[in-house]
Nucleic acid binder design. Structure first.
Length: 349
DNA sequence: CCCAGCGA
DNA sequence: TCGCTGGGG
């Protein structure tokens, strides 16, 4: 959904927290979302990503390894959720994104040719492409780190929302708030990005922010179905344009004052703009998306395979042995502390 | 994004 | 301990 605008609307119920707030909590992280962020952000000033001696990109592995280790050190229990096959009706949005990516790639290449240094990194950030093998090695690395992951049959955001609904996870971790539309009860942002953000010229740390579906609904005085209608009017990944000419404010007023979706979508002229898909199909998709059933017992945290980590990062991809070994020790320590904490809470201490 | 090293 | 810089792969 049009995140920037909706954030504005629900700002009062978004809570800024620090990482320790999430200590002891289980977070289902949107893996593709995180990997794209690492690919975009982990670059040299000229825009080139990190590569091993064979020229293979390693930015995603670096980000995944160190960031995940840090989250675990905060006491956060991380589950990664990988996207499966996108629904047919997401094609438009995907083509749009691919087009934009290619445009940026052109701009980036041209800037290099012409020797323009200033904007190189900015362009490069949008050229990232997540390849199949990157996904596979990311899963392998997570396994070696003792971090569980779930392969979604369809949308990762939907699977992550399911994990929260079922009580297996406490939060969906993603930069998008889309999982709220899938009924995800709690969402946490800014878990995989960090660094500084400029506010009125002053640099401040970016902190995690969390939002709860129930708070949002109470605040907006909408029910869950109406939130979906609202999103469909302003635009989602499946109908990126929303209803042209209707903005956030109008859409909000419309759904608040209409209880009959048939009338509502007739009024805004849905059928004019979307011939291939009905609002009802999309509503059903959000309410009951394809997910795989998971039980709490299926999720295992904390079995580190040091040798495998070293094989992937040091042997295969030329990471610094010292840094990796140090991080492995920190990871093991974090797990030890975590399990001690579990035992203490088990005895009520 | 991350870390290591440095000087304050 | 902190903020900054340069390099990581």
């Amino acid at each position: 959904m049009g995140l920037a605008e909706i954030r504005e609307l629900i700002k009062p119920v978004i809570k800024e927290v620090d990482f320790s707030y999430l200590s002891g909590k289980v977070v289902a992280l949107d893996a593709f979302n995180a990997l794209y962020q690492f690919l975009a952000a982990i670059r040299q000033p000229d825009g080139t990503p990190l590569k091993d001696s064979k020229g293979r990109i390693t930015s995603h592995l670096s980000g995944l390894f160190y960031r995940t280790k840090n989250l675990i050190e905060y006491g956060i229990k991380v589950i990664y959720v990988f996207d499966g096959k996108h629904p047919e009706f997401k094609k438009k949005e995907q083509e749009l994104r691919e087009e934009q990516r290619k445009k940026m790639e052109e701009k980036y290449k041209k800037a290099i040719e012409m020797g323009i240094k200033g904007d190189l990194k900015k362009y490069a950030e949008f050229t990232s492409k997540l390849e199949f093998n990157m996904v596979d090695e990311s899963k392998e690395l997570l396994e070696a780190m003792g971090v569980p992951y779930v392969q979604a049959p369809s949308e990762g955001e939907a699977q992550a929302a399911y994990l929260v609904k079922k009580g297996i996870a406490d939060y969906v971790g993603s930069q998008d708030y889309d999982s709220l539309l899938f009924g995800g009860l709690r969402v946490a942002r800014n878990l995989t990005i960090s660094g500084k953000r400029k506010v009125r010229g002053v640099e401040v740390d970016i902190n995690p922010e969390i939002a709860e579906l129930n708070d949002i609904l109470n605040y907006l005085k909408l029910d869950y179905k109406k939130l979906i209608w609202f999103a469909l009017i302003v635009g989602t990944d499946y109908n990126p344009d929303g209803i042209p000419g209707i903005g956030v404010k109008t859409a909000y007023e419309l759904v608040k004052n209409n209880n009959d979706p048939e009338k509502l979508f007739k009024y805004v002229g849905w059928d004019k703009y979307y011939k291939e898909i009905s609002w009802k199909e999309l509503e059903e998709f959000f309410e009951d998306p394809p997910v795989i059933e998971i039980n709490k017992e299926d999720i295992k945290f904390g079995e580190v395979n040091e040798e495998k980590i070293r094989k992937i990062l040091i042997d295969e991809h030329d990471f610094s042995e010292d840094r990796v070994n140090k991080a492995i020790e920190e990871l093991k320590n974090a797990y030890r502390k975590g399990s001690q904490k579990n035992i203490l809470s088990f005895f009520g201490k």
